[in-house]
Nucleic acid binder design. Structure first.
Lengths: 345, 345
DNA sequence: CCTACTCGTGAGAGCGCTCCCGGGCTAGTT
DNA sequence: AACTAGCCCGGGAGCGCTCTCACGAGTAGG
């Protein structure tokens, strides 16, 4: 069998067999060394490693996958019907965390994006068909059955953000939105503000609910402080502007506002300026997300930062554990948020 | 051989062999049908398709890869040492274009990120080792030999943005920066501005060079219009602020400024405000990139938009052509920019 | 009527790897 | 000295697919 010495494929990648020949051992032994099995003598291991080095051997992913029946890759699924994904650093940062954590394990990161309903269905097919060992799902909508469909299929899945309908044991990683909102609001209080309004997000999303809960929690038990001075938005700048106008109408004396997203905070600042209020002199503002925009507003926006990269890492770690253990459920992980102080308070 | 009926693997995926059995043909014929070969009779094709449908057959990627010696996937390589990648919509939008174009061809999108020098080296290894059929490289630095190293290796590579050192026939897709800058500057002129300054980017990057060239081109031949009223920045907000202060010092009478990035434009607006100038009444401002931030400044920033998603699609198309043709070089593609009018002019 | 060619098809031979069984060897036990 | 228990190691089998080759049947040409 000299087929190893077939035609010169240009950048011919050596195979296990060739390494084995060079090292004077068998294919099996080389495989054992490459995969770190302890069942190899020191001598054999050394000569194999030498041959590997010499020939520049790299295992063939496809062959390994075929033999092990694993895909050695995970999918990062962005199933966002809107096109404004990625305008926030959130995804990129998450992705970086995932990438970093994954690179150590040798798994590939396959990016899957779905906007249309048809693409959405394809994603499900794709993942179910075993092209990946597990999936990280971001920006999944509340009524989307995708995660459960995949779990039923036996595919390990991890989500970002607590799902609204808390399904039994759907693995997820989230930041402590309640505590973040509480800390932001408390900070306003500690800086002497007493009429603190809130612009919160949709109450059919866990972030919306949690951030409002945090706001209320911070004000609970404080004397002479209104706790229900809140208006609802949809996280967009326009909705923030609108909400702010309503709030000013309801209480022209308000001296601070907690916005559940930076975009809404930006809208609020615009409305405040239009109403002749100065930030932070007349009204202090805090946002949430610590987006890029927060750094460039005038004044720069104090905001709650989610450790997005860390969240990516945690999601990955969780997923790898699930994949290894062959399980599909595990306890959620909640990571702490941090208040970033800037000029708007 | 009943090994097809081995243990019930839960979600046992059917193999070619099983489909063949169900359809009453041989493996080879099924393969031909699945791969769209014309060498199949209508009868055979029909019964195979029926069996495929019935059993829910999906080809095993790894097996196919192994047999064809292709990876059936392309890498999207982000080799950015800085951590501020993805804060701009640029990457996300590019990625979306790539993803859309790729999904039609059935290739996988593998995301590879490299920040540290070590990761950087790993990326090269990774791509060279044939784990992917080609690579899309974004944010490659001028002195980075990565693209050429890969090309020498025979790997098809496509870059975003014209490389500084215009190397013979390195495939790339870029937007028409010269024309974009020219149009932006011309727009300022047409609105009656006559003392138009520029804040340009580093001149060791093609975007920096091109955008300055466009600015100069717009003003060339206009009487009584200064053409060298420019200061340099590094695309950051701080540098824009600094440059604006310098410009105001050099010409307190200037009535417009073209900034080669939105971030620098934001910095410029801040410096203008600090100097008591109103935007756009006293000084008009245009930016470049049409970033998310541009929409949220006060006033909203007029800016040049690059068709990033289209660029992603073009890059992908180019890469697929290269992969198919077995070539590594092709002519660049330049896509047009668009001026987005907002309140800052 | 025989040869030549085309067309659809079946089947063997891999692609490069892992897994597992069994054999040879050494060391420890009776 | 014979026997068992480990430890290494070799190599067969197989993962699911593509590719090539050859064969039989049909059609055309001489």
């Amino acid at each position: 069998m000299v087929e190893a010495t077939r035609s010169g494929n240009g950048s011919a990648r050596p195979t296990l067999e060739q390494v084995a020949a060079a090292a004077g051992v068998s294919r099996g032994t080389v495989s054992r060394v490459v995969n770190g099995s302890p069942q190899v003598s020191e001598a054999a291991r050394a000569s194999v490693l030498e041959a590997v080095q010499q020939l520049g051997y790299v295992p063939n992913r496809a062959a390994r996958s075929l033999a092990t029946r694993r895909a050695d890759s995970v999918a990062f699924v962005v199933s966002e019907p809107e096109s404004r994904v990625f305008t926030e650093p959130f995804f990129g940062s998450l992705l970086r965390g995932v990438s970093k954590e994954l690179s150590a394990s040798g798994l590939q990161l396959v990016l899957v994006m779905a906007w249309t309903a048809r693409e959405h269905a394809q994603v499900e097919q794709y993942v179910r068909n075993g092209h990946v060992d597990g999936a990280i799902l971001v920006s999944v909508h509340g009524d989307d059955p995708l995660p459960w469909r995949l779990m039923e299929n036996g595919t390990p899945v991890v989500m970002s953000g607590r799902p609204q309908l808390s399904h039994p044991s759907l693995p997820y990683v989230d930041s402590d939105n309640v505590e973040g909102a509480r800390a932001a609001t408390a900070h306003l209080y500690e800086r002497g503000r007493r009429r603190i309004a809130a612009i919160t997000g949709p109450q059919d999303m866990s972030v919306g609910v949690d951030r409002l809960a945090g706001y209320r929690k911070a004000l609970r038990g404080r004397r002479g402080v209104p706790r229900d001075l809140c208006a609802f938005g949809d996280f967009s700048q326009e909705s923030g502007e609108r909400a702010m106008r309503q709030l000013l109408e309801r209480d022209p004396e308000l001296d601070a506002v907690f916005a559940a997203s930076d975009m809404m905070a930006v809208g609020a600042m615009r409305a405040l300026r239009a109403a002749g209020r100065r930030v932070p002199d007349d009204v202090a503002v805090v946002g949430f997300d610590d987006s890029e925009t927060a750094r460039h507003t005038d004044p720069p926006l104090t905001s709650v930062r989610q450790p997005t990269e860390l969240m990516g890492r945690e999601m990955t770690r969780m997923l790898l554990t699930l994949i290894e253990g062959g399980s599909t459920t595990t306890d959620p992980v909640i990571v702490p948020n941090e208040l970033v102080l800037r000029g708007s308070v």
